[in-house]
Every structure is written in C-alpha cells, then in structure tokens.
Amino acid sequence: MFDQINGMPVHALVLHAAVVFVPLLALVAVVYAVVPRWRPKIGWAAILLAVAAPVTAFVAMESGEKLYDRLVASGMTGPALEKIDAHSGFGTMTFYFTLALGVATLVMTFLTLRTTTKRLPRAADVLLAVVVLALAALSGYYVFRTGDSGAQAVWGTTS
C-alpha cells in the first residue's frame, strides 16, 4: 500500500502533502491559539488540518520506510544510506510532533468552540495556547529538517 503506484515510489508522491499541511497546521494552530476573536472563523480549518497533517505525515513516514527497504534491498550502503537514516529519524519526529500538535489543536478547538455561554478558564486557555505554540514550533522545525535532509540525501550538498 505504501510502496509504489504505477512503479513510482509513493513517498515521492505524498511527501509534498506533508510539506504543505504540517506548516499550515502550525500556522493555523498558532493563530487560533493567540487570536481568540478569529476562532469562529478559522476553527473549521484548524480541525481539518489537525486531522490532515498527521495523516499525511504518517503516510510520508510509512512510504519512506518502504522506499528505504527497497534501497537497502538493491544494495545501497555507505554515506548515502547514513544520510537517509538521518532523514528517516527527522521524519519520525515530524510525525510524532505533528500528531501531538493535531491532538492539542483538536482539544483546544473543541473546548473553545462550545455554543454555551460558559467559557474556558483563562489559565486553561493560556496553558493550551503555550502547548500549541511549542508543538507548532517543534513541528515546523522538524518538517524543515526532514525536508532539508531528504533534499541533501537526494541532490547532495553544495558546500
């Protein structure tokens, strides 16, 4: 399922979705957390991205593992494989931090988009915002490191 589609590695097809959705989730989650007056307007986007980003990160991670297995089976060794190992580690971290950000974003949206007049206590709102901000920063960092290490593994360094 995660290996190939018509002879093309699934990883090459789906990694771009993660590269788009993970930063979008981070951006929307941060705005949702720090600009309460925009919450009714962007809550739907936060919920959709909180589901889509971890799913795309997971598919990219799993398809990357299949591609890795294929490369090892073809006899790849040495420095190239070490670069791919580093890329794989960053990809795994991207998935875990994106999953955590998605869960935190869902929790925050469900607790703040209630239709009742009872509001979330200020301390809880601030705590959730801090958690979302930290997870957004970590997700953004790791998606960048994953993409950069993947590009370096494929295209090589210029320095």
Results as ranks from 00 to 15, higher is better:
Tyr68Val: 09
Val103Glu: 06
Lys118Met: 06
Ile47His: 05
Tyr68Asn: 11
Leu138Gly: 03
Val143Leu: 03
Pro36Glu: 08
Ala134Phe: 09
Met76Ile: 14
Val143Phe: 02
Leu25Pro: 00
Leu111Ala: 14
Met93Arg: 09
Ala153Phe: 07
Ala100Cys: 04
Val35Lys: 13
Phe110His: 14
Thr117Gln: 14
Lys66Ile: 07
Glu62Asp: 11
Gly89Arg: 10
Lys41Val: 15
Ala151Thr: 08
Ala104Arg: 04
Leu27Met: 10
Ala137Phe: 09
Phe21Ser: 01
Val59Glu: 10
Asp69Thr: 14
Leu49Glu: 00
Leu135Ala: 03
Val31Ile: 15
Leu81Asn: 07
Ala134Met: 14
Leu135Gly: 02
Val20Lys: 02
Asp125Thr: 13
Val59Arg: 06
Gly75Val: 10
Val35Cys: 10
Pro23Val: 00
Phe144Val: 05
Val22Leu: 03
Phe21Val: 02
Leu138Phe: 08
Ile42Asp: 12
Leu111Asp: 10
Pro23Leu: 00
Pro121Ile: 09
Val143Thr: 11
Glu82His: 14
Val22Arg: 00
Val59Cys: 13
Ala73Trp: 10
Ala137His: 05
Ala45Pro: 07
Met76Ala: 12
Arg145Thr: 01
Thr109His: 09
Thr115Glu: 15
Leu49Val: 02
Arg70Asp: 13
His87Gly: 05
Gly91Asn: 01
Thr115Leu: 15
Ala60Val: 11
Ala137Pro: 01
Val59Asp: 09
Thr115Lys: 15
Glu62Tyr: 03
Ala57Asp: 07
Val34Trp: 12
Thr109Phe: 06
Phe95Met: 00
Ser63Gln: 10
Pro40Gln: 11
Val51Ile: 15
Thr56Ala: 04
Leu81Phe: 10
Met93Ser: 12
Phe95Ile: 00
Pro40Lys: 09
Val107Leu: 15
Ala80Ile: 03
Gly78Leu: 11
Val31Gly: 13
Val143Tyr: 02
Val19Glu: 03
Gly75Pro: 12
Val131Gly: 08
Val72Arg: 15
Val20Thr: 08
Val35Gln: 09
Gln152His: 12
Gly43Ser: 09
Lys118Asn: 05
Val31Cys: 15
Leu101Trp: 01
Ala151Val: 06
Ala33Met: 06
Leu71Glu: 13
Arg145Ala: 02
Gly78Asn: 10
Ser149Met: 07
Pro40His: 12
Ala137Gln: 04
Val143Asn: 06
Arg70Val: 11
Ala46His: 00
Arg122Leu: 10
Leu49Ser: 01
Glu65Pro: 05
Ala153Tyr: 06
Leu113Tyr: 03
Val22Ala: 06
Lys118Arg: 10
Trp44Asn: 14
Leu99Asp: 01
Gly147Leu: 12
Tyr68Pro: 05
Thr117Trp: 09
Val30His: 04
Ala151Ile: 05
Ala80Phe: 05
Tyr96Ser: 01
Gly64Asn: 05
Val130Lys: 10
Ile84Thr: 08
Glu65Ala: 12
Leu99Met: 04
Leu111Cys: 08
Ala46Gln: 04
Leu27Ile: 11
Val20Asn: 03
Arg70Trp: 14
Ala50Ser: 09
Gly75Arg: 07
Val55Pro: 08
Pro54Asp: 06
Thr105His: 01
Lys118Ser: 04
Val55Phe: 13
Gly140Cys: 04
Val30Gln: 04
Arg122Lys: 11
Leu67Lys: 08
Val31Gln: 13
Arg39Cys: 07
Trp44Met: 14
Val55Tyr: 05
Leu48Glu: 11
Thr105Arg: 02
Ala134Tyr: 06
